[in-house]
């Protein structure tokens, strides 16, 4: 992937932003777009394994897995965003995140994404706020937009994205339907 080569060159040079406040993000792919989550919330990355499904749960909740004795729910991020699901393949991974919910304390949640990409530094000043659109519910879960070379990275606010009191089964589609 040409993108990977670019990002490899850009990343790992953490020294260049010593004095400007910057944040590190773990980026991953989903439906050909690159997304990022705050690296400090990432607990671990593991391969996809079958989860035990939860009865009557929203369809984006794939079930629960055993993470060294703790029962951890798994969220399919594609379905969470209303993107058409794909077959899980060898690159499919589960990113285990620590979510802080106001008044509830930390929870551990796993999210399924197409593939992990890299770790990038973003200067706080360079992060653009996401374009607000009236009909776009997803923008509430987007912290901002960052760029790595020519590519845009969508930075997610996982604390709002993975709230438990989320009643909506699936979010309305954010973009015009892509045809695969």
């Amino acid at each position: 992937m040409s993108l990977d080569e670019q990002t490899v060159k850009k990343s790992g040079v953490s020294g260049e932003t010593t004095f400007e406040p910057s944040e590190q993000y773990l980026t991953f792919f989903m439906d050909e777009e690159e997304y990022g989550v705050d690296i400090l919330s990432v607990q671990e990355i593991r391969g996809w394994e079958r989860a035990t499904s939860i009865p009557n749960a929203p369809s984006h909740i794939r079930g629960v897995i055993n993470l060294r004795g703790t029962v951890v729910p798994i969220v399919d991020l594609r379905q969470r965003f209303g993107i058409a699901p794909i077959e899980y393949g060898p690159t499919t991974v589960v990113i285990v995140l620590k979510v802080n919910e106001a008044g509830k304390g930390a929870r551990i949640v796993g999210v399924i994404v197409d593939a992990v990409s890299d770790v990038h530094n973003f200067k706080v000043a360079d992060i653009q706020s996401s374009p607000e659109m009236a009909d776009n519910n997803n923008s509430a879960y987007i912290k901002g937009l960052g760029s790595v070379g020519e590519n845009m990275v969508i930075l997610l606010d996982i604390n709002t994205l993975l709230r438990t009191d989320e009643d909506v089964d699936e979010l309305p589609r954010s973009k015009s339907k892509r045809v695969h």
Binding site: T52, I54, P55, N56, A57, I61, V64, N66, G69, T70, V71, V72, P73, R107, I108, V109, T164
Partner: peptide, 18 residues
């Protein structure tokens, strides 16, 4: 094991085990 610790209460399910 608690299901509520990381998820939420599920109707008809009192907990989980491994």
């Amino acid at each position: 094991k608690s299901l509520e610790e990381n998820y939420k209460r599920v109707e008809g399910v009192s907990g989980a085990t491994i």
